Computed example of a mutant assay.
Amino acid sequence: MNNHEIDFKLHGDDMQFVEVELDPAETVVAEAGALMMMEDGIVMETIFGDGSTSSGGSGLMGKLMGAGKRIITGESLFMTAFTNNGTGKRHVSFAAPYPGKIIPMDLSMLNGKIICQKDSFLAAAKGVSIGIEFQRKLGAGFFGGEGFIMQKLEGDGLAFVHAGGTIYRKNLQKGEVLRVDTGCLVAMTGDVDYNIETVPGIKTALFGGEGLFFATLRGPGSVWIQSMPFSRLASRVFAAAPQNPAGRSKGEGSAAGGLFDLLGGR
Rank of each mutant, 00 (worst) to 15 (best):
Glu19Cys: 10
Ser120Met: 02
Phe17Asp: 05
Glu26Ala: 11
Gly251Gln: 05
Gly100Ala: 04
Val161Tyr: 00
Lys170Arg: 11
Ser54Phe: 04
Ile196Ser: 05
Ala25Gly: 11
Gly68Leu: 11
Gly247Val: 08
Ile114Gln: 00
Lys203Pro: 11
Arg218Ala: 12
Ala30Tyr: 00
Glu21Ala: 15
Leu233Cys: 07
Leu212Phe: 13
Gly66Ala: 11
Gly139Val: 07
Arg70Ala: 10
Ala163Met: 06
Ser235Phe: 07
His11Leu: 14
Ser120Thr: 08
Val177Met: 10
Ile72Asp: 04
Pro229Cys: 07
Gly208Asn: 01
Gly264Trp: 00
Arg236Met: 14
Lys250Glu: 10
Glu31Gln: 09
Arg136Asn: 07
Leu259Cys: 12
Arg179Ile: 15
Glu19Tyr: 01
Gly183Asp: 06
Gly165Ala: 04
Gly251Ala: 10
Ser76Asp: 09
Lys170Leu: 08
Gly183Ser: 11
Gly51Val: 05
Gly157Asn: 07
Cys184Thr: 11
Tyr168Ile: 13
Ala241Met: 13
Thr198Trp: 12
Ser254Asn: 06
Gly12Lys: 05
Ala81Tyr: 00
Ala234Ile: 09
Thr189Val: 11
Thr46Met: 13
Asn171Glu: 14
Ser235Arg: 12
Met188Val: 09
Asp40Lys: 15
Ser108Thr: 04
Phe17Met: 06
Lys203Ser: 09
Lys69Arg: 15
